[in-house]
Deep mutational scan, measured.
Amino acid sequence: HNLTITQGKLFFHYNPKLCLSEIHKMEEVSGTKGRQERNDIALKTNGDQASCENELLKFSYIRTSFDKILLRWEPYWPPDFRDLLGFMLFYKEAPYQNVTEFDGQDACGSNSWTVVDIDPPLRSNDPKSQNHPGWLMRGLKPWTQYAIFVKTLVTFSDERRTYGAKSDIIYVQTDATNPSVPLDPISVSNSSSQIILKWKPPSDPNGNITHYLVFWERQAEDSELFELDYCLKGLKLPSRTWSPPFESEDSQKHNQSEYEDSAGECCSCPKTDSQILKELEESSFRKTFEDYLHNVVFVPRKTSSGTGAEDPRPSRKRRSLGDVGNVTVAVPTVAAFPNTSSTSVPTSPEEHRPFEKVVNKESLVISGLRHFTGYRIELQACNQDTPEERCSVAAYVSARTMPEAKADDIVGPVTHEIFENNVVHLMWQEPKEPNGLIVLYEVSYRRYGDEELHLCVSRKHFALERGCRLRGLSPGNYSVRIRATSLAGNGSWTEPTYFYVTDYLDVPSNIA
Rank of each mutant, 00 (worst) to 15 (best):
F246K: 09
C468N: 01
H352R: 09
P508W: 03
Y259T: 13
Y396W: 05
S474K: 06
Y500A: 10
L369T: 11
Q384S: 14
K302R: 13
G308S: 12
Q429F: 13
T340N: 14
S344Y: 10
W493E: 02
R313E: 12
T494V: 03
T386E: 12
V397S: 14
F246H: 07
K278H: 01
R319G: 14
K302E: 14
F285N: 10
V501Q: 08
S284N: 07
T241C: 06
S342L: 09
G368V: 08
F462A: 07
E217G: 10
L453S: 07
S363P: 08
H211Q: 04
C266R: 10
L437V: 07
S268K: 10
S367R: 07
D311Y: 15
E290N: 11
V331W: 04
V393I: 04
K278N: 12
P346L: 03
V414T: 04
T386I: 15
S284G: 04
D273F: 15
C391R: 04
T373H: 08
E247M: 06
A399R: 07
D291K: 03
L464V: 11
L453E: 02
V296L: 07
T272N: 10
H461K: 11
G325P: 03
L369W: 01
M427D: 07
V393L: 11
E452T: 05
K406Y: 06
V345W: 10
Y292G: 03
I418L: 06
P403G: 03
K406P: 06
L228D: 15
E290L: 08
Y498F: 07
F298L: 15
L470V: 12
S257C: 06
K432N: 03
F289I: 10
N295D: 03
T497L: 12
P245W: 11
R353K: 10
R376S: 04
E388N: 12
N383Q: 07
A463P: 05
Y441K: 00
G264M: 13
V359G: 08
P431W: 00
A381K: 03
H294Y: 03
L379I: 12
Y292I: 02
T401Q: 00
P205T: 07
E495A: 09
D261N: 10
E249M: 07
E282M: 11
S342D: 09
A405V: 09
A263W: 02
I366Q: 03
N422L: 05
D222T: 08
I438C: 06
V457W: 05
E279S: 09
P244I: 10
S341G: 09
H454N: 01
I482V: 10
C269K: 03
K302I: 09
R481G: 02
D503A: 05
T307P: 10
E281S: 12
P346A: 15
D250Q: 11
S257W: 04
E281L: 04
S392K: 01
V423Q: 11
R390T: 07
L440S: 09
V345Q: 12
S342H: 08
L464G: 11
V443C: 02
E247Y: 11
S363T: 09
N383C: 04
F226Y: 14
E362T: 10
F499K: 01
A381Y: 02
T288H: 10
R471N: 12
D250L: 12
C267T: 04
K287C: 06
W242P: 13
G472V: 10
S251L: 11
R316I: 15
A407D: 08
N206R: 11
A309M: 09
F215G: 08
E465H: 05
T343N: 13
G374W: 07
G476P: 00
Y441T: 02
G207M: 15
S486M: 00
S474V: 09
S243A: 10
V501P: 01
G322T: 09
H416D: 00
Y445K: 01
A263H: 04
G306D: 12
V214I: 14
V214G: 15
E388V: 10
F246L: 11
Y504E: 14
E442L: 10
I366L: 12
V214M: 09
V439H: 03
V329G: 10
A407V: 04
R400P: 02
S262F: 14
G491S: 09
Y478F: 04
T343E: 10
Y498A: 10
A381P: 01
L369I: 02
F337Q: 10
T497M: 09
D506Y: 07
R469E: 09
I377S: 03
G449F: 15
Q384M: 04
C266L: 12
P238Q: 09
D385V: 14
A309R: 12
T272E: 02
P312D: 15
S492H: 04
L228G: 12
A336T: 04
S203W: 05
C231N: 01
E378P: 02
R471Q: 04
P338W: 09
V359L: 07
V334I: 15
I276V: 05
E351M: 10
H371Y: 10
S284R: 09
E290R: 12
R446S: 00
C266N: 13
R313T: 06
S305Y: 08
S248R: 11
Y396T: 07
N383A: 10
G472T: 05
P312Y: 13
I377N: 01
N435D: 01
F285T: 04
E389S: 10
L237E: 13
A484G: 14
S458E: 07
E495T: 06
P205C: 10
K406T: 09
P387Q: 13
E217K: 13
I209Y: 05
V411R: 07
R353A: 01
A407F: 10
S392R: 01
F355K: 12
V324W: 04
E290D: 15
E224H: 12
S239K: 13
H211G: 09
F289C: 06
P338D: 04
P475C: 07
S223N: 08
I209A: 15
E351P: 09
H371N: 05
R316A: 13
A394P: 09
H416I: 08
V393Q: 02
R313Y: 06
Q380A: 04
V358R: 10
E279L: 12
R459C: 14
F499A: 04
K287P: 07
R447V: 10
V457Y: 11
F246S: 12
Q384H: 15
G472A: 12
K287A: 03
N339T: 07
T241W: 04
P300V: 10
D261G: 06
H294S: 07
R483W: 00
K460T: 13
P387G: 11
N206L: 13
S305F: 10
D229T: 11
S363D: 13
N326A: 06
S458L: 10
Y445A: 15
R471P: 08
E452M: 06
